[in-house]
Simulated assay, not measured.
Amino acid sequence: MTSLGFLYPGHSAEDDYPRIEQILASDIRLPLVHTDIGEDAHRVDALLEMGSAKRLAGGVEELRLAGAEAVVWACTSGSFVFGWEGAQEQVDNLAAVAGLPASSTSFAFARAAAEIGVRKVAVAATYPKDVAAHFVSFLASAGIEVVSLKGAGVITAAEVGTWGREEVLRLAREGDHPDAEAVLLPDTALHTAAYLRDLEEALGKPVLTANQVTVWEALRLTSRKVREPSLGTLFTQKPVVTAP
């Protein structure tokens, strides 16, 4: 059995993780621990506090007890707001505290884009545009060009968590661009696990979503290879998951 640990901020779309575990239908387990988010706000100061070392460290012991072999900070905005070097320091600290390989959703997006071979992307974000702009800068550090940015302006993760299939599809369509090789939806508060096939069929190109890439990144950290087309193009690559 492979156990992959996730630190998830608050409560919004955490049910994507048991859904993905069910879709994989294997010996892979996805234990998840909720972190204390403080203020629920897509605002830079609040996000920096949400991703602080103290808040992340609080959930590590529970994941260790669950047998986690790797840990991923399942939050995009609470990692990319630190910038590339700050986000690396964040996961280095997490790895040191956990005694396990560690990463975050922001790095998962960068590595997933490389895995499917795309360099030009569109970003369809739930966040206000000023927050989403930090994600653009983060991707630029990985050599990924954002040809189009959509910021939906939603302030709280709680509101994002209420969105269903139609809202998710609309966000992706509005954020797409003819020059984009893939569309990225960077918010772990957004339910997407059930809609990945629909998203890619609607747009006619790969779609990377936050909870999808977060699980993929945890698999990568443990060198576990998985193929599951219902989880999108990312899970159909050969090899799907490469060693760290």
Rank of each mutant, 00 (worst) to 15 (best):
A57D: 04
A74W: 13
S104N: 15
S148W: 00
F235P: 00
E200C: 03
T2R: 08
I155P: 05
L199D: 07
E49C: 13
A114Q: 15
A194W: 14
L171E: 01
S12W: 06
A172S: 12
M1G: 00
E21D: 00
A158K: 15
L219W: 06
V215K: 11
L24I: 14
K150F: 07
A13I: 00
E69N: 02
S3H: 02
D45K: 15
T188A: 14
G204R: 06
F135N: 01
V226E: 11
M50P: 08
E49M: 15
F6T: 00
P101I: 05
L100F: 04
Y195L: 05
L169P: 05
A140H: 05
E69R: 08
D92E: 14
D27L: 09
A132P: 08
K150R: 14
P239S: 11
T233W: 09
F135D: 03
T192N: 07
A125G: 02
V91K: 14
L199Y: 06
H134Y: 10
A243I: 12
A243D: 15
A113Q: 11
P244M: 07
S103F: 11
N93I: 02
R111F: 13
L184P: 10
R165E: 12
D27W: 10
V60H: 06
V183W: 01
E174R: 10
L199H: 01
V121M: 02
T242C: 11
A66Y: 03
S230P: 00
R29P: 02
Q237V: 10
A142C: 02
K205D: 10
A112D: 04
S3E: 00
D40A: 05
K54Q: 15
A152C: 05
I155Y: 13
E49I: 14
S137L: 08
I37K: 10
E167M: 04
A172P: 11
A46N: 07
L234W: 05
Y17V: 01
A57M: 09
T76S: 12
A157D: 15
